[in-house]
Computed example of a mutant assay.
Amino acid sequence: MTTGTKTRRSRKGQTATSASGDRILALDAGNYDLKFFDGIGHPKAIRSVRFQLPQGRDAVSYSEASPLIELPDGTRYHFGAQAYKYRRQQQTVVENKVELARLHLYACLESWNDSTEFSVQVYASTPDPARNAEPMREQLTGLHEFRRNGLDYRVQVTHVEVEREGMGAYRYAKQLGLVPSSGYTIVVDIGGGTWLTRLVDAEGEVIDENVMDRGGAYELAVSISFDKRLTSILGTSADPSIIMDGFRNEHTYADTELSWEEWLDEHLDSWFKGIFQTVRAQYTPYLPRVTRFLVTGGSTHLISDRLAGRKLFTVMGDPQFANVRGLHSMSSDTQLCMTAN
Rank of each mutant, 00 (worst) to 15 (best):
L100G: 04
V93F: 03
F321Q: 01
A59V: 09
G216V: 06
E117W: 00
V187W: 00
R306C: 12
S299E: 07
T2A: 15
F37K: 03
S10I: 09
T252K: 09
V290Q: 06
G21D: 08
Y283L: 11
G150W: 07
T339L: 13
E261T: 05
T194Y: 02
G309P: 13
G56E: 07
R310N: 03
R229W: 09
V211D: 01
K228S: 14
V98W: 08
N249Q: 15
S10L: 09
Q91A: 06
F293A: 04
D189V: 00
R47E: 09
K44G: 12
P129L: 08
P67Y: 02
R76S: 03
L25I: 15
S270M: 10
D318A: 15
G150H: 04
M316F: 01
L336V: 07
A83V: 15
Q175E: 08
T185A: 02
L140A: 05
R76Q: 06
P288Q: 10
A107P: 03
P43S: 14
W263Y: 14
K85C: 01
N132G: 07
R154T: 12
V98D: 04
K311L: 11
E209A: 14
K273L: 09
P319W: 01
V187P: 06
I24A: 01
L143A: 12
S331C: 04
S63C: 07
G204M: 10
G326Y: 08
R164M: 13
R306M: 15
F146S: 01
Y106F: 12
N96Y: 12
N149C: 05
Y283D: 13
V211L: 10
R229E: 13
Q89W: 12
W260V: 01
V162N: 11
V200H: 00
L312G: 05
G246V: 05
G235V: 05
T197M: 11
A107G: 05
V122E: 00
Y62C: 11
S48Q: 10
S63W: 06
T141W: 03
V222W: 04
A173M: 13
D58G: 07
A59C: 09
L230Y: 11
L53P: 02
V122I: 15
S66H: 06
S299L: 07
G298F: 10
G216A: 07
M330D: 08
I233Y: 07
Y283G: 09
T75R: 05
A107H: 02
G191N: 11
S182K: 08
H104W: 08
N210Q: 09
L100N: 07
G80C: 02
A340H: 02
A19G: 13
Y253C: 03
E250Y: 02
D208R: 08
A16R: 10
A19P: 07
G80Y: 00
H301L: 13
E95P: 00
I40E: 15
N341C: 05
L258D: 14
V200T: 00
D269L: 10
R164Q: 15
V98N: 07
Y86A: 05
T92C: 14
M330R: 04
R9T: 03
T2V: 12
G326S: 06
I190M: 07
L103N: 00
V160I: 02
L71H: 00
M338T: 13
T339M: 15
V290K: 12
T3I: 13
N210L: 13
R164L: 14
S331L: 02
G191I: 15
G150Y: 04
S304I: 03
M330T: 02
L25K: 01
L34P: 03
R325D: 03
R289Q: 11
D58K: 10
L336R: 13
